[in-house]
């Protein structure tokens, strides 16, 4: 029996910006650099940058998203955070 370790982003859980990541504000949004994996990630909206910076203040990613975007954009931002989780830009807490 093969067990696969699938990493799944749970938007109802609390998250934070990884301690190994530096954020630099840019005109388009921000650059995120992971010092461990050496990945460079472009965050391409100001709302996403605000969301990532304030993630730690909320009990869930869903709550943090609702604080910065309208409900119609909620799923789009869940997917963006899921992508950041896959890139190890976010970590659980």
């Amino acid at each position: 029996m093969v067990q696969s370790a699938v990493r799944v982003f749970d938007s109802s859980a609390p998250w934070k910006l990884s301690g190994q990541v530096s954020l630099r504000d840019e005109a388009f949004g921000a650059l995120a650099y992971h010092h461990g994996t050496r990945r460079l990630v472009f965050l391409k909206s100001r709302e996403l940058v605000a969301l990532v910076r304030n993630l730690e203040e909320f009990e869930s990613a869903d709550e943090a998203i609702d604080a910065v975007v309208v409900p119609a954009q909620h799923q789009r931002y869940v997917e963006a955070l899921s992508s950041l989780f896959s890139s190890e830009i976010l970590s659980g807490r």
Partner: peptide, 8 residues
């Protein structure tokens, strides 16, 4: 709607 996240 363009991608919000891109990685290199």
């Amino acid at each position: 709607e363009e991608l919000l996240v891109e990685e290199v």
